[in-house]
Amino acid sequence: MTDDAKVRDWRIRENEQHRQAVMDWLIENGINPNDVPINTIASVTDGKLTISLWVADEQGNHQIDPDNPIELARHTITVPLKVPPTYHVELWLAPTCPTCGR
């Protein structure tokens, strides 16, 4: 995890206002926050949300990664953006430019 990602991750976990804003936004966009790993990378591009999620079965149980049995399996999805990100959500989203972080 990069230093920028660590700072972003800390902001969300340590600030209830940010955490709740992100959770509400995920729900509004059809994403179950319980399926989102704490260190997920999410981005919004061209009206689409791309996010890494834990793999869950029909009952909602998270699945073990068969290639690394001490980790939960993940997959990345891209869905149409239903609700644009708020200020707090933008702080959480991955920077779009790897050089400048904007």
Rank of each mutant, 00 (worst) to 15 (best):
Arg13Leu: 09
Arg13Lys: 10
Arg13Asp: 09
Glu14Gln: 14
Glu14Cys: 11
Glu16Ala: 15
His18Lys: 09
His18Gln: 08
Gln20Pro: 00
Ala21Tyr: 05
Ala21Arg: 01
Met23Glu: 15
Met23Cys: 12
Asp24Arg: 14
Asp24Trp: 06
Trp25Pro: 00
Trp25Val: 04
Leu26Trp: 09
Ile27Gly: 01
Glu28Cys: 07
Glu28Asn: 12
Glu28Leu: 12
Glu28Ser: 14
Glu28Val: 01
Glu28Ala: 15
Asn29Asp: 05
Asn29Thr: 06
Gly30Val: 09
Ile31Pro: 04
Ile31Trp: 03
Asn32Gly: 10
Asn32Thr: 11
Asn34Thr: 11
Asp35Lys: 14
Asp35Ile: 07
Asp35Cys: 13
Val36Pro: 07
Pro37Lys: 11
Asn39Arg: 13
Asn39Glu: 07
Ile41Gln: 12
Ile41Ala: 10
Ile41Tyr: 04
Ile41Leu: 08
Ser43Asp: 09
Ser43Lys: 15
Ser43Trp: 06
Ser43Gly: 14
Asp46Tyr: 04
Asp46Thr: 05
Gly47Arg: 04
Gly47Tyr: 03
Lys48Asn: 08
Lys48Leu: 02
Leu49Trp: 01
Leu49Phe: 04
Leu49Lys: 02
Leu49His: 01
Thr50Ile: 04
Thr50Lys: 13
Leu53Glu: 05
Ala56Leu: 02
Glu58Thr: 11
Gln59Tyr: 08
